[in-house]
Every structure is written in C-alpha cells, then in structure tokens.
Amino acid sequence: MAATPLEDLIAKAIKDADKSFFNEDYAKQARAVMAALKKAGYEVAPVRPPEGLVEWAKDNIPFGRLRPAELITQMYSMMVENVRRFDR
C-alpha cells in the first residue's frame, strides 16, 4: 500500500532531522515532524477537547449572520488553533 501524503511528510521530516547513524536524537526528530506538520497546515490535537476549550469557544463564537457551514468552519478552525492553550 502506498504511503499517504501525511505519512510522506512525516517520513521526510524524520529523515531530514537527524543524519547521524548512532545515538539518534528522537526529540529532535519529533520537533522536526511537529514543525513540518504545522508548516503544512496541520495541528496535532486531542480527539476530545481539553477542559476549558469548549467554554472558551462558547464565549468566542463568531457573531453575525453566518451560514451553518461558515459557522462550523470558523468554530473548527478557532478551536484547533487554540487547543494548545488548554492542552496542558
């Protein structure tokens, strides 16, 4: 089975992060993967929202006349962009 574009992105980040043959720096590789994902527009987030994020999102709902799809898109982006604030 062929690798997905996301798998290719992760593999390249690991390959580029550490060229040593011995004593690989796995933390460095992990940082490279996280940076590559972020640069490609991804964010690693928990499946369930961290405590506080839902309440915060409720207080920051975009106001105005939005179509349901626009509201969901804005809410999704807002919550994913802010998940790190509450994921501690």
Score class of each variant (00 low, 15 high):
Asp16Phe: 05
Asn23Ala: 15
Asn82Gly: 02
Lys39Cys: 05
Arg65Ser: 14
Lys28Gln: 09
Ala32Tyr: 03
Leu37Gln: 10
Glu24Ala: 13
Glu24Gly: 11
Phe86Lys: 09
Lys15Ala: 12
Gly41Trp: 14
Leu9Asp: 03
Pro49Tyr: 01
Ala17Pro: 00
Asp59Glu: 12
Gly64Met: 09
Glu51Val: 09
Phe86Ala: 06
Glu55Cys: 06
Asp18Phe: 02
Asp18Met: 01
Gln29Ala: 08
Lys28Ser: 05
Phe21Pro: 08
Ala17Ile: 02
Leu66Pro: 05
Glu55Leu: 10
Gln29Phe: 04
Val54Gln: 10
Ala2Asp: 09
Ala30Cys: 07
Thr4Tyr: 00
Tyr26Cys: 01
Gly41Lys: 14
Thr4Asp: 01
Pro5Met: 05
Leu71Trp: 00
Lys38Val: 06
Glu7Asn: 01
Leu66Arg: 03
Lys15Arg: 14
Leu53Ile: 05
Ala57Met: 12
Tyr26Ile: 04
Ala45Leu: 07
Arg85His: 10
Leu66Ala: 04
Leu71Met: 07
Val54Leu: 12
Lys39Tyr: 07
Val80Met: 10
Thr73Lys: 13
Phe63Trp: 05
Glu51Ser: 11
Leu71Gln: 06
Ala13Val: 03
Glu24Val: 12
Asn82Ala: 01
Phe22Ser: 09
Ala11Asn: 11
Lys38Ser: 09
Ala11Gln: 08
Glu55Val: 11
Ala36Arg: 04
Arg65Tyr: 11
Val47Trp: 07
Ala35Met: 11
Ala69Lys: 06
Asp25Pro: 04
Ala69Cys: 01
Glu55Pro: 06
Asp25Glu: 11
Ala40Leu: 12
Asn82Lys: 06
Arg84Lys: 15
Phe63Arg: 13
Asn60Gln: 10
Pro68Gln: 07
Glu81Pro: 06
Leu6Ala: 08
Met78Tyr: 13
Met75Ser: 06
Leu6Thr: 11
Asn82Tyr: 00
Ala36His: 01
Ala3Arg: 11
Ile72His: 01
Ile61Leu: 14
Glu24Tyr: 08
Ala13Arg: 00
Ala69Met: 04
Glu43His: 13
Tyr42Ile: 04
Gly41Leu: 12
Pro46Arg: 06
Asp87Met: 07
Glu7Arg: 00
Ile72Asp: 03
Ala32Asn: 02
Leu71Ile: 00
Ala13Leu: 00
Phe22Tyr: 12
Lys19Ile: 07
Arg48Ala: 14
Pro62Arg: 13
Leu66Ser: 05
Leu66Tyr: 07
Lys38Phe: 04
Ser20Thr: 13
Ile14Asp: 01
Ile14His: 04
Thr73Gln: 08
Gln29Ser: 06
Pro46Cys: 02
Ile72Gln: 03
Asp59Ile: 00
Ala17Gln: 01
Glu7Gly: 01
Trp56Asn: 06
Glu70Thr: 14
Leu6Pro: 00
Glu7Val: 00
Tyr42Phe: 14
Ala69Tyr: 03
Gly64Asp: 09
Asp25Ile: 03
Leu6Tyr: 02
Val80Arg: 11
Val83His: 06
Glu81Met: 11
Arg67Gly: 07
Ala32Met: 04
Phe21His: 13
Met75Val: 13
Ala13Met: 01
Lys12Ser: 13
Thr73Pro: 00
Lys58Glu: 14
Lys19Ala: 11
Val54Glu: 14
Ala45Met: 08
Arg31Gln: 12
Arg31Phe: 03
Lys39Glu: 15
Asn23Pro: 07
Pro68Arg: 10
Gln74Ala: 10
Asn23Leu: 15
Gln29Lys: 13
Gly41Gln: 15
Phe21Gly: 15
Arg84Glu: 15
Asp16Trp: 05
